[in-house]
Design a protein around this nucleic acid. Sequence first.
DNA 1: AATTGACAGGTAAGCGGTTGCATGAGAGAA
DNA 2: TTCTCTCATGCAACCGCTTACCTGTCAATT
Lengths: 365, 365
Amino acid sequence: MHERMYACTFWRLLRGEEGLIRRKVAELAGVSEATVSRVLSGAGTVKDDTAKRVMDAAKQLGYVPNALAQRFALRKSGNLGVILPLLPKVNLFSTFYFSEVLSGIGVTAKQRGYDLLLLFREADEARDYASLFRTQKIDGCIILGSKDTPGERAALAELKEREHPFCLVNQRFEGEAYNTVDADQKMGSRHAVRHLLRYGYRKICFLNGPPEYSNSLDRLNGFQQALAEAQVPFREEHVLIGNYSRKSGYRQTETVAALIRSGEVDAVIAANDRMAIGLMQGLKELGIRAGEDFALVGCDDSDVSSMMEPQLTSIRVPFYEVGCEAASRLLDLMTETEPSPPFEVKLPVKLIERASSKTTRSTAK
Amino acid sequence: MHERMYACTFWRLLRGEEGLIRRKVAELAGVSEATVSRVLSGAGTVKDDTAKRVMDAAKQLGYVPNALAQRFALRKSGNLGVILPLLPKVNLFSTFYFSEVLSGIGVTAKQRGYDLLLLFREADEARDYASLFRTQKIDGCIILGSKDTPGERAALAELKEREHPFCLVNQRFEGEAYNTVDADQKMGSRHAVRHLLRYGYRKICFLNGPPEYSNSLDRLNGFQQALAEAQVPFREEHVLIGNYSRKSGYRQTETVAALIRSGEVDAVIAANDRMAIGLMQGLKELGIRAGEDFALVGCDDSDVSSMMEPQLTSIRVPFYEVGCEAASRLLDLMTETEPSPPFEVKLPVKLIERASSKTTRSTAK
DNA sequence: AATTGACAGGTAAGCGGTTGCATGAGAGAA
DNA sequence: TTCTCTCATGCAACCGCTTACCTGTCAATT
């Protein structure tokens, strides 16, 4: 009891003091609290002389405005939300991808005075992005790992309708004009195909990801287009589907092995490095070696691609820059008063040649 | 101009309406706004009947309380801060480590109704963790990637002094009793040494990380202890230092190659997988193969360890659980009223045997 | 029947900032 | 000198929610 009361008094005192700091600053500077506010928030007109006195007083007393109160008064949370899928223990996407994008977003947000609120979205959870805005937890958000599903479409449509600023990363929705920052995956596949053709490979198999990701469709698109350009026939049965996990790449071992052995296929392009690596490992177990018995190209140029043996040719995607761009554009949009048309940014990718695909195919079967 | 005014009116209206929702809920339920608050926040005594009416009304009108106002009134941000080093483009630590820990923290925080505020700490920036609390941006924080430097010590001491709840992950400070969640790295090294000794390796080199990380010291400690237990002499010159990056492992290639060739060393333990992999690659270039010419053990059991050829023996550290534990303990501490003694949790690790160290050394030179 | 206590629920005062409006001072113009 | 006009600053309302305090009701006790 005693302690309880003591603690209470203590907190009262403490709070009292904290609360008084602002007043003390005002007194010390010989102005009103309103002026302190004007100086610290940079709004309104204040004489230079006065401003300096206030700044000095604030520094001397160690006064820092309460962000919570400030944001409440301004009706802005000052938070940039980052929504990302929660995949505990199961890294469907590469962690590489997320940490690069997140770093980019983080740096940019910080530069512009925003805080980053991380929002994990559980797989089965109803997607109610709009209520994050309604509760004022965030002023804008970037959505990672979005998939084209009815629930997601509904959630995004609601955001759009209520004019909440948001930006999709690496995902577009056919028929909807949302703000998007994406990598030019289509061009990536084209580069990969051209690269393989240049080295003499002509029978290319494509290990793609699920069609809910627009990236998967883009890649397939680029793949087909590059083949068409080179007048190499496209074979439907040479397109396989995984889920971007290493296991799903590994699972295609038998199928691909058969294709390679029968001479139907001499090169594989995978839609990400993890699947490429899974497949490479599976085939190695069967004695089929990437870079020798067939050419392999991955995508992402994740850190592991240069750790493999042989090192993996891959398509470098500027994930960090994607994050920067998304945050930067979104924040622009949030600070502008005029509504502006949605942006759809597409960042260039680049093929990084490594051992898994470089050996020239001297004689095409 | 026209549009501007229109927009303004629009927003007024919108805000007006938003503001009225609460009142409308109260009216619809036939109670005062205070009662609405009592029902929604679960505090105070309200008749079941009334509560139900309020809940129904709120649901019907789609009312969601404004988190910003709520938190301001309660003087709690509802945010759990996660401080992590900003390493754009340079992943000194493995991204694996961070994403695992972060997932653990995220899941736990979410379960307990907290939001995650991500705070990047720039390398050269003055560490002023305390002001995050002063501005009420966070109610507690978890610090990742902390190093034992004077600046860091000062910042942490300030937190402690002001009784701000915080928790360190994978780092302890000699002489300070801070809340910590750590993996049992010391035991990890001991496992690694014992494993190697069991397979007949006796001349073990240790590639450690910088001493600013307590983990590095722990690992060295366990290494020495295990050697002592087996009465194998410890050789100072067999301890090398890297910085946890792959490159820093690669850089030790010459040194280690010389040691192996001269027969002074027949096995290497690295303080993380990335350095192990860098070293492995370097040695492979010189024709010295892990798992055959020498044994190699890494640490972290990151996703790449099973992607290598040969696959890398490594010490599995339950990073996800570390994150959960840190968040869980810290949140307990934040909701308790009584001050409790600091906790120092140490989670067990496990050696995962793979090809890089399994070949029995038949004849020790 | 009167007294008491417990409890439901209303009233209004904050929480710590911002900002519209009013005011006073000082400068420039008549 | 007096009248404006402008600019710097103070006053006070407000942001939306919580909660201390108060009142009135009703059941249990005497």
